[in-house]
Amino acid sequence: MTSILRGVRPLDVVLATAMTALGVLLMVFNTQGSDDGTRIGSTSWLMVPVFAAATLPVLLRRHHLWAVLGVTAAALAVHDVAFGWVVRCGAGLPLSFALAYAAGRLLTDRRRSVAAVVAVVGIQFLVLVRDSAAGLDIIPVTAVIAAVFWGVGLLVQRRTHHVAAPVPATPAETLV
């Protein structure tokens, strides 16, 4: 167990806890039904752990980003099929933005990084396809927001790489 969590930083724990808490809160609201006319297809308490299975993997994004994307997508697909129309966007979209940032920040191979952000848009599709509050109409906007988060991640990666790179020694004759 400790080998899986090796390299997990305190900020990773904060992010995973916040995303999971947000998801749990939203799923609890879904189990209460809807007073405002929002379509709720299921009020099963099983929504809570299945959605948590989509958010908790973000804890391991630094070392296993592709696995995190796969588990998150699989959990969301199961959630869509098992529970139908509920509100997922309030927790699923912030999660997708965090994953887009991670794709830009953590993946140094540009093709893999682009592929990861495409996978994030796929995750957004799974969040929105049976979402009672937002729906698929907003996916162009959420995809652009994900691209912005990805770009910020690339920028941070580039700046971090430049700071971490050793400064070449200046020849003595150029100092005179």
Rank of each mutant, 00 (worst) to 15 (best):
T31N: 12
T31S: 13
Q32K: 12
S34P: 00
G37R: 04
G37V: 01
T38R: 15
R39V: 13
R39N: 12
R39S: 11
I40C: 11
I40A: 09
G41L: 00
S42M: 04
S42W: 07
S42E: 06
S42N: 05
T43N: 06
S44P: 02
W45N: 08
W45Y: 13
W45A: 14
M47I: 05
P49V: 00
V50I: 15
V50Q: 12
F51W: 13
F51V: 02
A52L: 03
A53H: 04
A54D: 07
A54Y: 08
A54S: 12
T55E: 02
T55R: 07
T55K: 05
L56G: 00
L56V: 02
P57F: 07
P57D: 06
V58W: 11
V58S: 13
L59H: 11
L60Q: 13
R62L: 04
R62D: 03
H64K: 14
L65Q: 06
V68T: 13
L69Q: 06
L69A: 05
L69E: 04
G70Y: 11
V71P: 00
A73E: 03
A73G: 04
A74W: 13
A75F: 00
L76I: 11
L76Q: 15
L76F: 14
A77F: 09
A77L: 10
D80V: 04
D80C: 03
A82Q: 10
F83K: 03
G84T: 01
R88H: 05
R88T: 10
C89V: 12
C89K: 10
C89Y: 15
C89F: 14
A91C: 00
L93D: 04
L93T: 07
L93P: 02
L93K: 02
P94S: 02
P94I: 00
L95V: 09
L95F: 13
S96D: 13
F97G: 11
F97L: 15
F97T: 07
A98F: 15
A98Q: 07
A100F: 06
A100T: 04
A100Y: 10
Y101T: 00
A102D: 09
G104H: 11
R105C: 01
R105D: 01
L106G: 10
L107M: 05
L107I: 08
T108W: 14
T108Y: 14
T108K: 09
T108C: 08
D109C: 07
D109N: 14
R111S: 11
A115W: 07
V118G: 12
V118S: 11
V118T: 11
A119Y: 05
V120G: 00
V120H: 02
V120D: 00
V121L: 07
I123M: 06
I123R: 09
I123P: 07
I123N: 09
Q124M: 12
F125K: 03
L126M: 05
L126H: 05
V127H: 05
V127C: 03
L128H: 12
V129I: 09
V129K: 14
V129M: 07
R130L: 14
D131M: 06
D131R: 09
S132M: 03
S132H: 08
S132F: 02
A133Y: 15
A134S: 08
A134Q: 10
A134K: 05
D137A: 04
I138N: 03
I138G: 00
